[in-house]
Amino acid sequence: MAEIYLLAFCLQLAVAPVLYLVDRPLLGGLNLLCLAGYVVALVLHRRLFVATALTIKLSTFLIFVIIGIAITADSSSLIYYLLFAEVELMLADLRRRTKILVTGCLIALSFGVLRLPPLYGTDARLSTVDMLLSDLGLGLVFVMLCVVILRMLTITDRHEHRYRSDAMHDSLTRVLNRRAIFERASAYWKRGRGFAIVLVDADRFKEINDNYGHTAGDAVLRHLAGLLRDSLRGDDSVGRVGGEEFLILLPGAGKTEGVAAATRIRDRLSRHPCQLDDLVLPVTLSMGIARSREGEQLRDVIDLADRRLYAAKSAGRNQVVADGHAESAASSNAERLTLGAERAFEADDV
């Protein structure tokens, strides 16, 4: 709304000298009244007196419009000015009842003004000057409506993009969340596109929380998420699927590319350890890798990657396992991951 007030002020300020040049001092004076009203409305709006600000702004605007119509005897243009006033009203942060009540008042005002005779001493016929002023006023209203609509579309698109981004990303690490990464893997699977999955787990993460606090734990997760993201190719994806667990999706990759990605991640972590102020936090990563061709269904591939991750941790942590364990019994952690994947697949099917 503040932008609308500023736009209206600038446009009517530009019109002010025109009204005096064409010998319409009454309209010029009313125009100055409008400008003062807009300034007061803008100040009140910035101080959160929204209803009062809108009342002052619309009142001065409508007084100017009604008297201008009475002077020029051009009541046919009233509906366009009232339309802009209605747009301002609908955009204001007011209660619905208030908007409905004021809309009714605007409708009643339109019927009343349309039946008013011209002011005494004015010609019922439009002069050339009055026709030009009427056209100028309608043109400015049209410009303001276009600007307001374009501005609202921009704001709507921006908010929609932000809400979609928030719905797909983990709030702490800003990588994809559990549902989004599983849905992306499901889309690759349905299209028959080969890929590799790397499950990553931060070793002894609970000890970091216990010894250094949850602030340090959050810093570790953010650091790891950024490190994983920076270590991947342009079309790779990473998502957080558990407390300290991440899933990396490598489209078109096999075992060699998967191991290479895991190696890049470990090398980068060794060069850029996680720090909290001057404290270096001891974090290593265990990883399990599986390829899409190693399972009959996607959940089988995720389950296999998780069993290999479990094997890496059992082997002493800070390991990468990309072979074997295809026939091992699923761990409880694998069951939890698979359940999350199944829910994502079911929602995607719906």
Rank of each mutant, 00 (worst) to 15 (best):
L281V: 12
M1C: 15
I4R: 10
T60F: 04
G137L: 13
G242E: 01
S237W: 02
S292G: 09
I149Q: 12
E245D: 12
Y5N: 11
V102K: 04
G137E: 10
V141I: 13
A347K: 09
R204F: 15
T338A: 05
E207G: 12
D230N: 14
V65N: 03
K255L: 05
H223P: 01
L133Q: 03
S110F: 05
G192S: 08
H159I: 13
T128L: 15
L199T: 03
V259Q: 04
L140I: 15
L42H: 06
L7W: 09
A341F: 04
V321S: 02
R125D: 11
D130V: 11
N31H: 11
L298K: 00
L119G: 14
D306A: 03
R97K: 14
T60L: 08
E296Y: 05
V43H: 10
V147F: 14
K206Y: 08
F195M: 01
V148T: 15
L221I: 14
G37Q: 04
L101F: 14
D300V: 03
L48R: 15
D157Y: 05
L232S: 09
E335P: 08
I149D: 13
L91I: 08
A8N: 06
L119I: 07
R178S: 07
L309E: 00
A73Q: 06
A322V: 02
S165H: 15
M287P: 01
S286P: 01
D323S: 15
F182V: 03
L172N: 00
K57N: 15
V87I: 05
R233V: 09
L44T: 06
R299S: 09
D267K: 04
G68E: 10
V43A: 08
E207M: 15
T215L: 13
L54S: 09
L54W: 05
A322H: 04
I67E: 05
A305D: 01
H159R: 13
R47I: 14
E160W: 08
A225H: 06
D166K: 12
L91M: 13
D277F: 07
F205H: 11
G288Y: 00
I67S: 04
H214T: 04
R191D: 14
A219P: 06
R222E: 10
R178M: 01
E86I: 12
R24C: 03
E88D: 13
D349H: 10
R46P: 05
N318A: 10
S165W: 02
R24L: 01
C146M: 14
F64M: 14
